[in-house]
Amino acid sequence: MRKRRDSLSSIVAKDLVERIEAGEYAIGDKLPIEAQLGETYNVSRTVVREAIAHLRSEGLVESRQGVGVFVSGRGGGVLKISPEKTGELAEILEILELRLGVEVEAAGLAAQRRDEESLGKIMKNLDQTADLDAFSQNAREWDFAFHMAIAEATGNSYMPRFMAFIGPVIIPRSQLIHASVPNLTRDYLAKMNDEHRRIAEAIQRQDVLDAREAMRFHLVGSLERYRKLTLA
């Protein structure tokens, strides 16, 4: 099922790239909304979101919160994360190192600056993952939503824009779970949920140092787990 979805999203992404390169969607144009694209390609909104994430990672489109997705260029962006390689362990390690460089500081800023509205969004996303069976089915989207909520709580407009640019492709866990990698099971999800809770609670207490440390522990722990897999 996962391979089929990835295949569909790649087909949609490829067609959208061709339309952009042909000038059908010019730089600055707004793409149709997810529902319209889903009808056009006869796919689910989840497939459309993954296709848009692919285009975003190529620097072809950008998301503007509350407005939509716009064509930003015809490729050649400096930052490029290949969707085809995001299931490879070597690529996952590099992506996690990138996240470590950004998200530790984001957690500290969120603890320092969060308001009740942004905190509520973080806690809501955390509560979603309490049902591990549902979490396993929505791991990429819910994980990304949690980290995006923290980025938004920083009050730094570039933090969520950076996260939106690289998109859910930076969340490797669900890809490995769906690939049936050994030991990435319910216990793994529970551990990730506990680590998320520690981050959220530090932000709730406005404990800047603990928020940074909790995020660092979370991401470094993930790095170590994936490094062990490369030795398996």
Rank of each mutant, 00 (worst) to 15 (best):
M1C: 12
K3C: 07
R5V: 12
D6Y: 12
S7Y: 10
S10M: 10
V12A: 01
D15W: 03
A22V: 07
D29G: 08
G38F: 00
G38Q: 08
Y41A: 10
V48R: 02
R49C: 01
A51C: 04
I52Y: 07
R56N: 06
V61A: 08
S63I: 09
R64I: 11
V71E: 02
R74F: 04
G75M: 12
V78M: 11
E84S: 12
K85T: 13
E91M: 04
L93F: 05
E94R: 14
A111G: 05
M123P: 12
D127I: 06
Q128E: 12
T129R: 15
N138Q: 12
F144D: 02
A145Y: 05
H147Q: 01
M148A: 07
S157W: 12
G167V: 05
I171Y: 00
Q175R: 15
L176D: 00
L176K: 07
H178F: 09
A179Q: 08
V181M: 07
V181W: 00
D187F: 01
L189M: 10
K191L: 07
R198G: 13
R198W: 08
I199L: 03
E201L: 07
I203Q: 03
I203K: 08
Q204N: 11
D210E: 15
L219W: 00
S222I: 00
R227V: 12
L229P: 03
